[in-house]
Write a protein that binds this DNA or RNA. Structure first.
Length: 481
RNA sequence: GGCGGCAUAGCCAAGUGGUAAGGCAACGGAUUGCAAAUCCGUCAUCCCCCGGUUCAAAUCCGGGUGCCGCCUCCA
């Protein structure tokens, strides 16, 4: 079986995507609001999208992936005004930082990354369609709201009966809420107000800006059509964002908006929700600086738990209150150790290819391939998939030695498996000429049993952060770190 | 108050009816000129607690305890 099973939030069951066909899987994922550096919790979500997309491609599905960039909302407007720069300049800055992080983490770029503000006409058209159908209305101030009472299926995704929603339970009802006919109605179009400054579009709907929920529907329609195959996001978006997307999209098109809805759970840091107050709020840059982690280690840590489970990034702190600070990022050390084992195995594949074709080796590899595929196929069970790889590592190591052909086959499997995980391939590294010379000198000195010279060369390499290894039955190797 | 999720070894984390994957750490061994690294092995009679269903439950049901999330713009 090659078809992917995904847990669908709407039906609360694993659904079979069906076998790969000619038509691309229409995949939409909710992107960042570009008003700030994204934090590791955000990054977990984006890496989930990445692994999902990689799994689809690996299983043979053509994919068209669209991820939006929210570049107009309260936060971006507030941020740009505070700095007296244009909204575009402000959001462009954080867009670039976001892309830099994603590239560093090895995430494949989406096929299209539309900015909301580039699609105002399409959003206005969509609002117009909803007004024409009578499922939206204008308030006195010129804003347009979606009338959720006119959409019978409202609440199906989040499994909240519309009438049990407790108005204002979050204590965040805005002052202008009296403009709405029903507290649960949401804004499709927001009439310009003083706080918006010069952020406004003059449109057939009047002067104002689009509501947040609207952009995803409009962008999806524009780039993927009115029906999607997979729509992804974080669990916090189930309600109200995705509920509202469904309402406005389906009310407008009369079609099912998305076949499957997938949501990733949140990241916890030190067992708690991230919050600046708790000093457990980190960006990729923070982890690289504070923990000395490589982006690759961060990627491993963020994808190594199942996407539907809360992932606890374990951190050890010292001090209390204001003095509290992280002293050890346990999860990143785990990632480092695990990757070291995998990297070492790759080196050993070459170094120990001095024997003959191992008995049972082919069968063992074939089993790993089957198990790996099944783990990926079954709702992206990355923890299980990693387990399959580690089990293979142990078993192949037990063979002791093998021939070059077997080394190549195992290597090829790891390369193939990495098309999904994007984390197995070590960053390409090479020794600088002077380092290479030291390495050669160390090897030669060992050959000559000139231990003093060998120790000297080794110490020089270690001073440069290079560890050397000498083992019987295989070529000497080196590693950084 | 309403809705939902989760509780598995020191830590992280799979497993959802057939008798506990994997990683880190720890400990033992092998290897090594020494060392580091590496490799192998050991490491949960048991899966938050109490009842129940079943030939059989970490896995299903009921109750309890604890933690987390959502309830209008937070991945």
């Amino acid at each position: 079986m090659t078809s992917l099973l995904l847990f669908d939030t709407l039906t609360r069951q694993k659904q079979d995507l069906g076998p790969p066909g000619q038509a691309p899987v229409r995949f939409y994922s909710c992107g960042p609001t570009v008003y700030n550096r994204v934090h590791v919790g955000n990054l977990r979500a984006f890496l989930f999208y990445d692994v999902l997309k990689r799994a689809l491609l690996w299983l043979g599905y053509p994919v068209r992936h669209v991820m939006n960039l929210t570049d107009v909302d309260d936060k971006t407007i507030k941020g740009s005004r505070a700095e007296s720069v244009s909204l575009r300049a402000f959001t462009e800055r954080y867009t670039e930082l976001f892309l830099k992080d994603m590239d560093a983490l090895g995430a494949l770029r989406p096929d299209v990354m539309p900015r909301a503000t580039d699609y105002v006409p399409q959003m206005v058209d969509l609002v117009q369609r909803l007004l024409d159908k009578g499922v939206a209305y204008r308030s006195d101030d010129g804003s347009v709201y979606f009338k959720i009472g006119a959409f019978p299926g409202y609440g199906r995704l989040s499994h909240l009966e519309a009438r049990t929603l407790q108005a204002g339970a979050g204590g965040r009802v805005a002052q202008d809420e009296y403009e709405k006919e029903d507290v649960q109605d949401f804004a499709l179009w927001k009439a310009w107000s003083e706080e918006d400054g010069d952020v406004a579009w003059d449109t057939a709907l009047g002067k104002g800006r689009p509501g947040w929920h609207l952009e995803c529907s409009a962008l999806a329609f524009e780039h993927l059509g009115e029906s999607l195959d997979i729509h992804a996001g974080g669990v916090d978006l189930v309600f109200p964002h995705h509920e509202n997307e469904i309402a406005q999209s389906e009310a407008a098109s009369g079609k099912t908006f998305s076949r499957l809805w997938v949501h990733n759970e949140h990241l916890l840091v030190g067992g708690q929700k991230m919050a600046k107050r708790l000093k457990n709020f980190f960006t990729l840059g923070d982890l690289v600086q504070l923990a000395g982690a490589t982006p690759r280690e961060v990627r491993y840590a963020l994808i190594s738990a199942h996407y539907r489970s809360q992932l606890n990034l374990q951190v050890t702190y010292e001090g209390e209150g204001e003095a509290r600070r992280p002293v050890r990022f346990d999860s990143l050390e785990v990632a480092r150790g695990a990757l070291r084992r995998l990297d070492q195995f790759r080196k050993d594949l070459q170094a120990k290819a001095t024997g003959e074709a191992p008995a049972g080796g082919a069968e063992r590899l074939a089993r790993a391939k089957d198990e790996y595929r099944e783990a990926v196929r079954d709702d992206l069970n990355v923890p299980r998939a990693l387990g399959v790889l580690f089990e293979l590592v142990t078993d192949v190591n037990k063979l002791g030695a093998w021939d070059a052909a077997y080394a190549r086959e195992v290597q090829a499997f790891l390369d193939d498996a990495d098309r999904v995980l994007g984390v197995l391939t070590p960053e390409p590294e090479a020794l600088a000429p002077d380092e290479q010379a030291l390495f050669e000198r160390w090897k030669a000195a060992r050959e000559a049993k000139d231990w003093a010279a060998a120790d000297e060369a080794r110490a020089a390499l270690q001073a440069k952060g290079i560890q050397v290894q000498a083992r019987k039955g295989s070529e000497p190797t080196w590693a950084r770190g």
